[in-house]
């Protein structure tokens, strides 16, 4: 099994503030990884670098064997991205991602997440939770090898959030896609991921299974770990 994402020695400084200080993020094919940390830990900067939207000051990034930023277009053919805070345009086009049979791809993906009724609706006519759901559907339309989700269920009701998690797990299991997800919902992380990378002040402070990290810090679950790290390292 190869690595779908290999980022080594990433550093990023904004206005003399070190946002990310030499971290490695490696995700194997089919692996589900959580990227956690308190506000200001460097999660979003790291994700944006992994997506090619921000250039690292140092370090190298390869997605599906394609080096960023030089081969960004080829790399992004293997990546699906969604963020709970990002709005969507009125119409979502599968063609952006090189999908040939757009209608079939849309129908299959909507069915996977149980929202077939959204097929012909404009995004502006959906509620914010529904739009988040469509954003995740959009991210999986082209069957990417790596799904990158930033706070995917932040604005969703618990029942919809559960539906999303179930759909994501089913998607990753059935297609063998890897998942890299950030979230402030520790139960969600425990349900979705096999491994967690904890960031604090731009450093990786823990990198293991959720259970192992919880045990390392002397807690039963990740919630306690998060609170402790937020208290000691939060900005």
């Amino acid at each position: 099994m190869g690595d779908v994402l290999r980022a080594v020695g990433l550093c990023k400084t904004y206005n003399k503030v070190d946002a990310v200080k030499g971290i490695d993020v490696v995700v194997a094919d089919g692996e589900r990884v959580g990227l956690l940390g308190p506000n200001g830990a460097g999660k979003t900067t790291t994700l944006l670098m992994l997506l090619g939207a921000v250039l690292p000051d140092h370090g190298s990034i390869e997605v599906a064997g394609h080096r960023l930023p030089r081969h960004r277009s080829r790399a992004m053919q293997h990546v699906g991205f969604a963020a709970g805070y990002l709005p969507l345009p009125d119409r979502v086009f599968a063609g952006w991602y090189g999908v040939r049979d757009e209608r079939t791809a849309v129908d299959e993906t909507l069915e996977r997440f149980g929202i077939t009724g959204f097929a012909d609706r404009l995004c502006s006519s959906l509620s914010s939770g529904q739009r988040t759901l469509v954003g995740i559907v959009k991210a999986t339309l082209h069957r990417p090898r790596l799904l990158v989700l930033d706070e995917p269920t932040a604005s969703l009701d618990p029942d919809i959030a559960l539906k999303v998690r179930t759909g994501l797990l089913e998607y990753c299991t059935s297609t063998g896609a890897a998942l890299l997800v950030t979230s402030h919902d520790m139960r969600e992380v425990e349900m979705l991921t096999e491994r967690v990378i904890f960031l604090a002040r731009g450093h990786i402070v823990a990198n293991d299974t959720p259970a192992a990290i919880a045990a390392l810090y002397g807690y039963d679950d990740l919630e306690g770990v998060f609170l402790e790290l937020a208290e000691t390292h939060g900005r």
Partner: peptide, 10 residues
């Protein structure tokens, strides 16, 4: 506010 969506497509 669709720029990040566009930047993360091929």
């Amino acid at each position: 506010r669709n720029l990040l969506n566009v930047l993360t497509t091929p």
